[in-house]
Design a protein around this nucleic acid. Structure first.
Length: 263
DNA sequence: ATGTCGGCAAAATGCCGA
């Protein structure tokens, strides 16, 4: 089975491209981020017509996450991270779908840093780490996937060149330390595990001709608990989606899992 | 400092967030 994550950057503005990709890539479970739409204007009918059941947590203009499942309805297990009842931003949704538990997350960007937005990013990360602790040792496959807004290292696998991003929240030592702390619970970064040392970018800024120059960053990640890692077959990025008309600034990233443990 | 997008309010342009 195939599980994908895609920061769509406005689901209604990019719906035709999304539907084409669903038809071609045929992922079983899809986590979307940056819907940029309220609950009422989520394109439920078009998604269902494409053969997917859906759950979504919308927010007008900003944020927003959704979980799609091919041929069935995902069963919601959590909406929003625990730990801050004041937090009204739609950035986390969790569901059981097609035999796996999937957390769909849109971690705060955190720019400019330092400042309140960076503080919010780190606080949100603390809440994610605390919640992930409750999930990692489950006996069934669990995946925490989405736009983490963290470039894990300065290696060319993760960024074309850190020079113009040194002050960016995506590269800060605190952001990277939090990401490492999460992994240290026992999660596997599937893209890094399957493609060590290989440029596996998932985001190319609209500015400065960054897509034509392949000046990308790896910020969308699929983290697998040990039960899911045992079934990990392959991982990749659908780079071509960054080159289509009206493309999101992100490309979809995905993993495939064997149907049964050890298969 | 700059660059380019989508969404949105409120006017065919400017702002925000990324």
């Amino acid at each position: 089975m195939k599980i994908a994550t895609y920061n769509i950057n406005g689901i209604n503005g990019r719906l035709p491209g999304l539907l084409r990709w669903l038809d071609e890539a045929r992922p079983d479970v899809v986590c979307l981020q940056e819907l940029k739409t309220s609950d009422a204007t989520f394109p439920k009918a078009a998604i269902e017509e494409a053969g997917y059941g859906a759950l979504w947590s919308g927010q007008k203009s900003y944020n927003g996450v959704a979980i799609l499942a091919r041929g069935n309805q995902p069963v919601e297990t959590r909406r929003g991270l625990p730990g801050d009842p004041q937090d009204v931003q739609s950035r986390y949704l969790e569901a059981a779908a097609s035999g796996v538990l999937v957390g769909c997350l849109y971690l705060p960007n955190g720019n400019p840093q330092p400042g309140p937005k960076f503080d919010y990013k780190l606080a949100w990360f603390r809440r994610l780490i605390a919640h992930a602790r409750e999930l990692v040792d489950q006996t069934e496959p669990v995946l925490l996937v989405g736009d983490y807004n963290v470039v894990p290292t300065d290696d060319v696998a993760d960024i074309y060149n850190p020079r113009s991003w040194l002050d960016d929240a995506l590269l800060q030592p605190e952001s990277r330390a939090a990401y490492r702390e999460l992994l240290a619970q026992g999660w596997t970064d599937a893209i890094a595990a399957k493609h060590p040392g290989e440029p596996m970018y998932t985001f190319w800024d609209y500015f400065r001709q960054r897509w034509p120059r392949n000046a990308g960053l790896r910020i969308d990640h699929l983290l697998l608990n040990p039960a899911a890692t045992r079934r990990l077959k392959d991982a990749g990025v659908d780079r071509a989606m960054r080159g289509v008309e009206k493309a999101s600034d992100h490309a979809p990233a995905w993993v495939t899992l064997a149907a049964k443990r050890g298969a």
